[in-house]
């Protein structure tokens, strides 16, 4: 589904991603961990098409197409979804209108007519139930005045509505209370299928107990320095990142 090769990216001339290789197949869940500032959100941003990032080398294929060639909206319409580490507040745009517009723009891209009001509401209701999402938040402005956790849940709710092929969840767990974490994880597990895939960025093993990953990667200084299975997350939880940093320093020439 997603094939990242030797991806290099820079912001304002600073190299941030320094050669990422990652292959995600349909049906898989990949977790990405790594210390603060290692480039996890940057990777997510580059995949979603944030303009501030300049891709300086490498390639990304998504469902056989050149992802880097697409505008952010086309990436979304092709089935890529980013749940933001920091969802944006947009006063004056109602949550529900925003969702309706998004759903219909994606449908239009695939040559489908706009969704009927009734069908849209039905879908809204069933996804609200799935994600146990507070219906009162629907009529408010997009994320405006939402608590930190409400914003995260709203992003995941949008994910449920848009049914992406590949969802990238950037620290969705941070800010969620214990119950919310369970609810959101259960929702994500129900959305999992053999046709879609998830990249889960997190600092904590806890989320990975609920959403069990097939692979765990450690991103450090713009590179994936270690990959393994879910046991790697446990090891990191126990030992932190220092032992990895040591290994890398031994391997690499001093910069």
């Amino acid at each position: 589904m997603l094939n990242i090769k030797n991806l290099h990216a820079a912001v304002e001339g600073n190299a941030i991603l320094k050669g990422i290789n990652l292959n995600v197949k349909a049906g898989e869940v990949h977790a990405i961990m790594g210390p603060n500032g290692s480039g996890k959100s940057s990777l997510a941003s580059v995949l979603a098409g944030r303009e501030a990032y300049e891709v300086t080398d490498g390639s990304v294929e998504f469902e056989g197409k050149d992802l880097l060639d697409m505008s952010p909206e086309v990436r979304a319409r092709e089935g890529l979804f980013l749940a933001f580490q920091y969802p944006v507040e947009i006063p004056g745009v109602s949550n529900i209108n925003f969702l309706k517009t998004a759903v219909n723009e994606i449908r239009a891209y695939h040559g489908q007519p706009p969704m009927q009001a009734k069908a849209f509401l039905d879908m809204l209701k069933s996804k609200q139930k799935l994600m146990e999402f507070d219906a009162n938040l629907m009529n408010r402005s997009l994320n405006e005045g939402f608590s930190g956790g409400e914003k995260k849940r709203n992003d995941i709710f949008q994910m449920a509505m848009l049914e992406p092929k590949l969802a990238i969840m950037d620290e969705t767990d941070s800010g969620l209370d214990i119950d919310a974490l369970r609810v959101v994880s259960a929702g994500v597990n129900k959305l999992r299928s053999k046709d879609n895939a998830f990249i889960i960025i997190t600092h904590y093993q806890r989320l990975l107990e609920y959403i069990v990953p097939d692979f765990v990667h450690v991103l450090y200084n713009g590179r994936i320095v270690k990959s393994g299975t879910k046991e790697l997350a446990l090891e990191l939880e126990e030992k932190g990142y220092d032992w990895l940093k040591e290994d890398i320093r031994l391997e690499e020439p001093v910069q």
């Binding site: 098409g49 909206e73 979804f81 517009t101 998004a102 723009e105």
Partner: peptide, 19 residues
């Protein structure tokens, strides 16, 4: 944020101006 949800540039701008 709007584009990342599939909303095109012109539509997204118009939504923000209206907001």
């Amino acid at each position: 944020y709007l584009k990342a949800r599939g909303i095109g540039d012109a539509m997204a701008r118009s939504m923000l101006v209206k907001a």
